Amino acid sequence: MNHHDVELELLHLEYVFAHLSATHTVPPLSYWRGRLNALRKIPVVPQQRDRINRLEHLLGALEVSRPSSPDATPQEGPARVAIRARR
């Protein structure tokens, strides 16, 4: 995967993560964890590594806030990611 493809993947994940919630995610959070783990195996520039770290932090927060029972209410709303304007 070249840097352009990594950039497109990061933009997509940033968009998706801005709309995820701990209780209503299709595909499941484990799917998104796998996509982030795949990016970890690719050489990226420092700015992209920072964005991957930020996404992992957001995903971790969603995983922790996931209710343990079906009757539990979500602790947090959708994760919000500040998406930088790309030119």
Rank of each mutant, 00 (worst) to 15 (best):
M1V: 05
N2C: 02
H3Q: 12
H4R: 09
D5F: 01
L8P: 00
E9A: 15
L11Y: 04
E14W: 01
Y15Q: 03
V16S: 07
A18V: 02
A18R: 10
H19P: 01
L20S: 01
S21N: 03
A22F: 00
A22G: 00
T23H: 02
T25K: 00
T25P: 06
T25M: 04
P28S: 10
P28E: 06
L29P: 02
L29V: 02
S30N: 02
Y31C: 02
Y31E: 08
Y31W: 14
Y31F: 12
Y31Q: 04
W32D: 01
W32P: 01
R33K: 13
G34E: 14
R35A: 03
R35Y: 05
N37V: 12
N37H: 10
A38C: 04
A38N: 12
K41A: 08
I42A: 05
V44H: 10
V44N: 03
V44G: 02
P46A: 09
P46E: 14
P46F: 02
Q47Y: 08
Q48E: 14
Q48N: 14
R51I: 13
R51A: 09
R51W: 11
I52P: 02
R54F: 09
L55D: 03
L58F: 15
G60I: 00
A61C: 12
L62N: 08
E63L: 09
E63P: 08
S65D: 09
R66C: 06
R66I: 06
P67V: 06
S68P: 07
S69M: 07
S69W: 12
P70V: 01
D71T: 12
T73A: 13
Q75G: 03
G77P: 09
G77N: 04
G77W: 07
G77R: 07
P78K: 08
A79D: 10
R80I: 14
A82V: 15
R84Y: 01
R84H: 08
R86A: 08
R87C: 11
